[in-house]
């Protein structure tokens, strides 16, 4: 990969409690992509983000932002990064306008009311710009935090669980916003529990478990490589057991003998479907329905995270 906007090398973090939150993570983020980092609770997603943003000190390892070390060039690195944290932590008594303006100044940018107004309008918050943060709903607070993170026009935006606790309509609005930001050239790294979210938006997906990055790939490639396709054959008459003549297809009998399931690689030259159907015919096994099923990203995620323990 040429010219990554963010390079993470050998990043480790062991907390004072002895917990190994990250175990030598290597990751490159491409300029302008949407990267989804998936992982169960406690996998190390937030620790990874917090180290890159300067909130947590790593035990070892290095982060390069646009090719520059993020600690020795902390001003350069941090000016380019915006963070929307997982928790809704806001200054309760500040107005939306003031808190967003504060963030812009804090990150070294001169006052630009037109830009703040534009962000608030894009996030449907402009009519609340004089409201104190404490009077906003959870969804509005989340949008205000996104506005704060965008206030200094960052090239890289971290969204840590951006749609946690927001309703379906707002989630769709946020997805649209993220796509628009990407279209404007912002690189987006998001963590999420909603696999659907990653499936909907991400260009690439990384799966982190117990502090280790166990998979990183293009979303479609990951789904193609890891995703399994199954053929379900609903039988006209139930079978007591799988006939030995079908052993080479490794089919499974289910639904009290009413269904045969065959797992195949849809990208292989020979899927084995045609020969299976011929063998069923030869054996006089009749069926009344056929259907295929593709693994979702969620099923792949579960397989990756829990596969080893099964």
């Amino acid at each position: 990969m040429s010219d990554p906007i963010l390079s993470i090398r050998g990043l480790r973090k062991t907390y004072g409690t002895g917990v190994d939150a990250l175990k030598s993570v290597d990751l490159d983020i491409r300029r302008g992509e949407i990267f989804a980092l998936l992982g169960p609770n406690g996998a190390g997603k937030t620790t990874l983000i917090n180290i890159v943003c300067g909130i947590v000190t790593p035990s070892s390892g290095e982060v390069l932002v646009d090719g520059r070390n993020w600690q020795s060039n902390y001003r350069y690195a941090r000016e380019r990064i915006g963070l929307v944290p997982q928790e809704l932590t806001t200054e309760a008594f500040e107005s939306v306008w003031n808190t967003v303006s504060f963030s812009r100044g804090l990150f070294g940018r001169p006052r630009n009311n037109a830009y703040i107004e534009d962000i608030l309008k894009r996030l449907s918050l402009f009519d609340k710009c004089n409201s104190e943060m404490r009077f906003l709903s959870g969804g509005m607070k989340r949008r205000a935090m996104i506005a704060k993170a965008l206030s200094h026009e960052p090239a890289i935006l971290f969204l840590d669980e951006p749609t946690a606790g927001v309703d379906v309509e707002l989630r769709r609005d946020m997805w649209d916003l993220v796509r628009k930001l990407r279209a404007d050239g912002t690189t987006i790294i998001l963590t999420t529990h909603y696999i659907e979210e990653a499936e909907e938006m991400a260009d690439r997906v990384g799966v982190i478990s117990k502090g280790e990055l166990i998979a990183v790939d293009e979303k479609h490639d990951l789904m193609a490589k890891m995703g399994k396709k199954t053929l379900d054959i609903v039988l006209a008459e139930p079978l007591a057991s799988v006939p030995p003549e079908l052993s080479e297809w490794n089919v499974e009998l289910g639904d009290n003998g009413h269904q045969l399931t065959y797992q195949f690689d849809s990208h292989a030259e020979r899927t084995g479907i045609a020969s299976l159907m011929r063998r069923l015919s030869d054996l006089g096994i009749t069926y009344k329905d056929l259907s295929t099923h593709q693994s979702s990203l969620e099923e792949i995620f579960v397989e990756l995270v829990h596969g080893g323990s099964k």
Partner: peptide
């Protein structure tokens, strides 16, 4: 978090 992640 905002202070710690700011270029200050």
């Amino acid at each position: 978090y905002e202070l710690l992640s700011a270029p200050i």
